[in-house]
Write a protein that binds this DNA or RNA. Structure first.
Length: 432
RNA sequence: GUGGCCGUAGCUCAGGCGGUUAGAGCACCAGGUUGUGGCCCUGGAGGUCGGGGGUUCGAGUCCCCUCGGCCACCCCA
């Protein structure tokens, strides 16, 4: 292991320029979609008392085996967030904001898993949570936001699947119904699924194993057991989606991995992703979660969407290409560096994006750097300009060049940005 | 956690059966133009062949271990 260079921990990635420009644009797009709907940004700790996350469901894989948990130096048992919702709910319980409380977040999330395409140990989620109303129109609002975010990115090959888990009582009764049904068909299930029957009967429903699917096809259907109130709720959601012009399919076997969901659950899947991980955004209603974290009975609904997977989908559909923001002006200095140092500062303070080369390189090298920077305009200062109190402006696309008084530089650059050509900047001097 | 494939310069890749100083393209740097980019030409820098151990006269090439990547299961964003 001698001299083995450090690298990102397994299942994590660095996001560097120019790719990071895409992340910025993605988050900006998301923010504009949800803030338009009245959602405010929440920042919070990346780790919580482990109890906060255990409320996601003691039987879930995320809680049982994927949490990055540890004891800190004070003996507190804490965990890195494995998802966004529980922390938001904890914040709600702690601060008791007025309802409806509509917030959004952008956060890394951590799960100890075997990495593969679209699955990392640290990935990043954008999400919203809306607490304090059980109005199904809020479910619709949240789903529409996620849909419109994908649309804003240019994604087209996205399918929406929805289901209802009913009230907490419905969910419990249904789990019992499925369990007793499966008990009689144990022999027909795949061995792996057999073990889930007692602890986690609903998980068997979305098993991909053919033999299990044959069994679950005949299992009691959630939608047949829903209470009247839950059915009304679910129908209102469907009507709202239809009214928003959003296509969806109802899949009675859609069971999400976290136990807190009640009523509406939904998943957006990218058809452009052939990987096993094609869910790019998912969520649902969680009417019992606030209470289980010590708050007053408060309904809630929200979703999370993985940035990495969404970007993978964008790649697959060849949409949402983002150009990194280039500087506008590049200063080349042959006088020892004073001009580069002072002019870039002056330009930047005037609100103009400017860059320069360092280390007293040849003009050729500096021009090359100017070209690479993407700047439209180069400012050249050599001994000649210095002596005359002028600077040379060069349009890097047309190669037009002129000289202007140094004192006039800011005005000239502003005029150039306003659309004037370099030649028209009228310093009077001929190109040298 | 289980199984399969893979790991050579910053990037994409060559390196027949193990055999002398490990190559190319792109990118980077310098020169060709005593003060000028994008094209072209020339040159340069950059690698303990993921890491460790073993077999052998000799290993990038074979074996073992390990780390990492990809894929499937599982799970999920």
């Amino acid at each position: 292991m001698a001299n083995q260079a450090f690298q990102t921990p397994k299942g994590t990635k660095d996001v560097l320029p120019p790719e990071s420009a895409r992340w910025e644009a993605l988050i900006t797009t998301f923010a504009s979609v949800v803030e338009r709907a009245g959602y405010g940004l929440v920042h919070g700790p990346m780790f919580e008392d482990i109890g906060v996350f255990r409320r996601m469901g003691e039987g879930t894989d995320v809680v049982r085996k994927e949490m990055y948990d540890f004891h800190d130096k004070g003996g507190r048992h804490v965990a890195l967030r494995p998802e966004g919702t529980a922390s938001i709910v904890r914040a709600f319980v702690q601060h008791r904001p007025v309802v409806p409380w509509k917030v959004w977040y952008a956060t890394p999330v951590f799960r100890y898993e075997e990495p593969q395409s679209g699955r990392l140990r640290q990935h990043h989620q954008l999400g919203v949570e809306a607490l304090g109303s059980d109005d199904p129109d809020l479910d619709v609002e949240v789903i529409v936001l996620l849909h419109d975010y994908f649309a804003a990115l240019g994604l087209r090959q996205v399918d929406l699947v929805i289901n209802s888990m009913g009230t907490p009582q419905d969910r419990k009764a249904y789990a019992e119904a499925v369990r007793s049904f499966l008990r009689h068909r144990l022999g027909d299930l795949s061995p792996e699924d057999r073990e889930k029957v007692e602890a986690h009967p609903l998980r068997v429903l979305d098993s991909k194993r053919p033999e299990s699917q044959a069994v679950t096809a005949e299992a009691p259907r959630m939608l047949d057991l829903l209470s009247d109130a839950a059915i009304a709720q679910f129908e209102r959601v469907q009507a709202g989606l239809a009214s928003a012009g959003i296509e969806f399919t109802v899949d009675p076997r859609l069971v999400r991995g976290l136990d807190y969901y009640t009523h509406t659950t939904f998943e957006f899947r990218s058809q452009a992703l052939d990987a096993a991980q094609n869910t790019i955004g998912a969520g649902g209603r969680y009417d019992g979660l606030v209470e289980s974290l010590g708050g007053p009975p408060t309904p809630g609904v929200g979703f999370g969407s993985g940035i990495e997977r969404v970007l993978l989908s964008c790649d697959a559909e060849a949409v949402f290409a983002v150009q990194p923001r280039a500087v506008q002006v590049f200063v080349c200095d042959l006088t020892g560096g004073d001009a580069a140092r002072d002019l870039t500062t002056e330009l930047r303070r005037a609100g103009i994006a400017a860059d320069r080369a360092f280390g007293a390189r040849s003009l050729k090298a500096q021009m090359k750097a100017a070209d690479r920077s993407g700047a439209k305009l180069a400012v050249l200062v050599g001994p000649d300009e210095l002596a005359r109190g002028v600077v040379t402006l060069r349009d890097l696309q047309s190669s037009e060049q002129t000289t202007v008084d140094r004192a006039e530089l800011m005005v000239r650059v502003e005029r150039y940005r306003g659309g004037a050509s370099v030649a028209g900047l009228g310093g009077g001097a001929a190109p040298s």
